[in-house]
Simulated scan of single mutants.
Amino acid sequence: MERDTIVFSSNILLIDDDEKVRTFLKIILRTLGFINVDTCNGGLDVERRMSVKPYALIFLDINMPGVDGMSLLKLILQKHPKTRVVMCSADSTAQNVKKAMTAGAAGFLAKPVLAKNIIPLFDKMGVEYDDLVSEQRSH
């Protein structure tokens, strides 16, 4: 199945129970040029949001209270197969990464999430972005 190209106007959803992580990721994505970035803390809010707006890319925490990120990944991909999901976790063991990728994740980010780790992931996934981070380092 052909997945949509992720561009600056694409809708992105950040799902994490930690507000600081959501805020930081949103700042990074805005810095990379993305303007349509929504956040939620998981659970039923995810299904409601996805029924209203299509998301091209979702960053999804694996460990959240009340909802299992892996189960949510399967549900998202079942209902929205064109959506690409990047799993995030502080528990980035090889087993956890393999489990996420086998379940259909498009990528994996270890926490704490750093801007320098998102850029290679986006390059691998073919996501277009403004490389302001590298430009600022070279000046």
Rank of each mutant, 00 (worst) to 15 (best):
V46Y: 03
G42A: 07
I28Y: 15
G69Y: 01
L109D: 11
R30L: 03
I76Q: 06
K79Q: 14
P120F: 01
K20H: 12
K53Q: 12
I12E: 10
V7N: 13
D38S: 14
F34G: 10
V97W: 00
L32I: 02
Q95P: 00
V86N: 07
V46G: 11
T39C: 15
N11F: 12
P65L: 04
D18N: 14
L77M: 10
L29T: 07
I6Q: 10
G42E: 06
V85N: 11
F24H: 01
A110E: 13
I119G: 07
G43N: 08
P120H: 02
D38W: 07
I15L: 04
R3Q: 13
F34W: 07
D130L: 14
L73V: 06
T5Y: 11
T5M: 14
D61N: 14
C88M: 15
L132D: 06
D130G: 02
F34Q: 07
T83V: 07
D123F: 03
V86F: 12
P120D: 06
N36W: 03
M70Q: 04
L73D: 09
P54H: 14
K82C: 07
T83L: 08
H139P: 13
I27W: 05
V97A: 09
L25T: 02
R30C: 11
N117P: 10
A106C: 08
K99D: 13
K26I: 00
T31S: 15
L121R: 04
P81M: 06
P81Y: 08
D61C: 06
A106I: 02
K99Y: 08
I118F: 07
T102M: 11
L72N: 03
K82Y: 13
G42H: 06
R30M: 06
Q136L: 12
T31R: 13
F8G: 01
V133K: 06
S9L: 05
K26A: 15
S134P: 00
M64V: 06
A115G: 00
V113N: 09
D123S: 03
N96D: 06
T31D: 15
M50F: 05
V7R: 12
H80A: 11
T93F: 11
K74M: 10
E128I: 05
T39F: 04
V21W: 07
A115F: 08
Y129Q: 02
D130R: 11
N63W: 02
L44V: 00
Q95Y: 03
K74N: 14
E128L: 10
M70W: 05
F34T: 04
L109Q: 09
V97M: 12
T5P: 03
E47V: 03
M70C: 02
S9Q: 12
D123L: 05
T102N: 15
M125E: 06
N36T: 03
A110Q: 12
I58V: 15
N96Y: 00
K74Y: 01
L29N: 10
D4M: 09
H80C: 07
E19S: 14
A90C: 10
L60Q: 12
K74F: 02
E2W: 00
N11P: 03
L32W: 10
C88S: 15
I118L: 15
